[in-house]
Amino acid sequence: MNTGSLKHGDFTGLAENYSKYREGYAPTVRSALIGLLDRSADQCDAVDVGAGTGIWARMLAEGGFRSVTAVDPNEEMRTTGMRDSKQFPIQWRAGKGEDTGLPDACADLVSMASSFHWVDFDLGTAEFRRLLRPGGWFVALWNPRHIDDNPLLVDIEAELTRLKPDLRRVSSARTGLNETLTDRLTACPHFEDVVFLEGRHTVQQSVEHYLGVWKSVNDVQVQLGEENFRKFLDYVKERLVDLETVETTYLTRAWAARRAD
């Protein structure tokens, strides 16, 4: 494992772990987002920006959208996503949140799943408004672990700050951008009718799978560095040595906003 070459927001070298171990989003939230559209999903086109390996893009395809386009700047993530999405009608292309390269008014839903925190807010929201048709919706969503009721998982996450007291989770849906996202989207001239949605789903993960999720997390590895990240994984293995599975609840949090005309 070499975390020394990792940079914030660059998932090169993490694609396999990301694809194999990252969990999806609450299906109830997907259903609620589809319900915001003014037509049925099979009459709508979706664009997923910062699609990574296509976890959310595949959920959109399963939701019945007429078309799904997945956009990501990282070639390794796109290649892995294309491999894992062969059975889905998803079109893949290179692009980033501030410049997707897609035509005007091509989508009824534009999404960023666990990736909006990497995008320049002003440039990104202008780009997403450009992509949307009248009445279309932009959604930013994340799926952090909900650990409050599980002392074991609370202790494991606390080890991060024991190793690095000033560690700041960039991608957590409970900190940073998300603390002000409702207000920022409400004030954004490109959108109106801001909606917040939240849903939960629980999964049983093998210990290998649980460790794999951590190995796919960019910001923790960058901030801890190679030595401390190895110490963290060793601590997790020690805490889970007597377990076969780890029950983990994921909290899907989504902010949706309609295109302003």
Rank of each mutant, 00 (worst) to 15 (best):
E127N: 03
S5F: 10
A15F: 00
D234W: 07
T248E: 12
V203T: 09
S206L: 09
T53Y: 03
I34T: 14
V203E: 10
R239K: 15
R230N: 10
R259H: 15
Q221A: 15
G63I: 07
W142K: 01
T125I: 08
R239E: 15
S216K: 14
R258W: 05
D166Q: 14
A57E: 03
F121V: 03
V170L: 15
D234M: 10
G136K: 07
E76D: 13
E157H: 09
R168H: 11
D219K: 07
Q43S: 14
M112W: 00
L36D: 02
F138K: 02
D42Y: 11
C106Q: 08
K86Y: 04
T69S: 11
R230W: 03
S216F: 12
P189N: 08
R169P: 03
K237E: 15
L163R: 04
E192I: 10
K231H: 14
L123G: 09
K237M: 08
L37D: 11
F116E: 00
Y21S: 13
R174L: 06
N150I: 06
A173N: 09
K231L: 14
E76S: 12
D242K: 11
L132R: 07
H117R: 05
V110S: 01
V194Q: 09
G176Y: 05
I55E: 04
L211T: 07
E16R: 13
W255A: 00
I55H: 08
A256Q: 05
F191L: 14
R58L: 12
R133C: 11
R30P: 00
P189I: 10
L14V: 09
Q205S: 15
Y210R: 13
F11M: 02
